[in-house]
């Protein structure tokens, strides 16, 4: 059996697990609810600005902020979904013994883990991209706002999900299914809070506090990629409305696009953490 065929077989199995275990159903229900709610909100916003309660600049600014807020909701749903799927699918199968019969086949453990990771990445990324795209279309239909770089923004959301699930896969090779999900989501939220704290620090000109966000973005690139995604979703005119540093202090706006160096670091981070996960899984006695 070639490694590629093993990886694709296991990836397809993981996707089938996500659909059969009703994870997809739960995500769809949550997403539809969020989109419906935001659609109503955006239509209200459009009605307010139409009644000249808001200037067109203010309306675009508000649309940007609310769009980022809803997108954060999607990224949180994707984070929860993939992190709690990664636990059962790797650690849970090891604990229950499902993995025994599978790994006794002529396949490499690293190929099995790559298949699991690929399936989860396709599922998580597919979800955020699809839900994000539908949301953008809803915003366009209600307020006539279209993000400046939708493709980049959705790709960065997918990258953020992939980073978190890679961490969840690493954790699930070492600790129990539930613990790996809880720790992964906990770290995701901690990094986000650290990013907000860092933003406030920068806004206030406090370098020490500002560094909290920078360090946390290097340690776990989810928040850094999220900042990049927000920047690509929001209207460039927000900078004219706010000063650059004030934008930093606001949790659902971002002042600068991502650098190529940071993207390269995020890719290297994923490769390194996946390598650690594979090493841990290959060495395990089942």
């Amino acid at each position: 059996m070639t490694t590629t065929r093993t990886v694709l077989t296991i990836a397809a199995l993981t996707l089938r697990e996500a659909t059969r275990r009703r994870v997809l159903m739960a995500l769809t229900v949550l997403t539809v609810a969020l989109i419906a709610l935001s659609g109503w909100g955006f239509s209200r916003l459009a009605a307010e600005s139409g009644g000249s309660a808001l200037t067109s600049g203010e309306a675009r600014l508000t649309a940007s902020i609310v769009l980022n807020l809803v997108m954060f909701g999607f990224s949180l749903i994707a984070a929860l979904g993939t992190a709690f799927l990664a636990g059962p699918t790797v650690s849970g199968e090891t604990e229950s013994g499902i993995v025994l019969a599978v790994l006794a086949r002529p396949i490499r453990r690293s190929a099995y883990l790559m298949g699991k990771w690929l399936g989860l990445a396709a599922f998580g990324s597919g979800f955020v991209v699809l839900a994000g795209l539908v949301q953008c279309l809803v915003v366009r239909a209600t307020t006539d706002y279209w993000p400046p770089q939708p493709v980049t923004a959705l790709a960065l959301l997918a990258a953020q999900t992939t980073v978190l699930l890679t961490l969840a896969v690493l954790l699930s090779t070492a600790i129990s299914p539930m613990a790996s999900g809880v720790v992964a989501v906990g770290l995701f939220c901690t990094t986000w809070v650290a990013g907000v704290v860092g933003g406030v620090g920068e806004g206030l000109g406090n370098e020490a506090v500002g560094r909290v966000g920078t360090v946390s973005r290097v340690l776990l690139p989810t928040d850094g990629l999220w900042q990049g995604a927000m920047h690509a979703f929001q209207d460039p005119s927000v900078f004219a409305t706010f000063g650059g540093e004030d934008v930093e202090a606001f949790p659902f706006l971002s002042s600068s696009p991502l650098t190529a160096t940071y993207l390269a670091w995020a890719a290297l981070w994923v490769a390194m953490v996946w390598g650690l996960a594979a090493t841990s899984f290959v060495r395990k006695d089942l």
């Binding site: 059996m1 199995l13 089938r16 697990e17 059969r20 275990r21 229950s96 013994g97 499902i98 025994l100 019969a101 006794a104 086949r105 002529p106």
Partner: peptide, 18 residues
């Protein structure tokens, strides 16, 4: 080496969603 090996583990569990 395991291409022609069949195995029934002591802890027999298979994917419950299949």
């Amino acid at each position: 080496a395991r291409a022609r090996v069949g195995y029934l583990p002591e802890l027999f569990r298979y994917q419950p969603w299949l």
